[in-house]
Amino acid sequence: MKDKKTKLGGLILLISYLLLFSTLVTSNAVLLVVLIPLGIVLQIVGIVFWIVSVWQDASQKGLL
């Protein structure tokens, strides 16, 4: 299960990378206003998924 969470987190982070990458090649105001917040939100979600998987891993091993 935690393995799935890591993969999902990684996938979400990849999408956020692509969104933020695309902001580097455009100066269109509308695109930037949409892409930057969306990229940031997805990145936070991806990181949270990874932290949850680490947390679960640690609690299963009785480290928490």
């Binding site: 987190g9 990684g10 982070l13 956020s16 990378y17 933020l20 902001t23 580097l24 100066s27 269109n28 105001a29 509308v30 930037l32 930057i36 990229g39 940031i40 990145q43 991806g46 990181i47 990874w50």
Partner: peptide, 30 residues
């Protein structure tokens, strides 16, 4: 790969784009 690099990348992109948003070309894009 899940925390340090993405956070640094996003911080850098935001900083870069905030600078770009101060340019007259940015205002002119509308």
């Amino acid at each position: 790969s899940f925390l340090v690099v993405p956070v640094l990348f996003t911080g850098g992109v935001i900083n870069e784009k905030l600078d770009a948003m101060q340019k007259t070309e940015f205002c002119e894009s509308c």
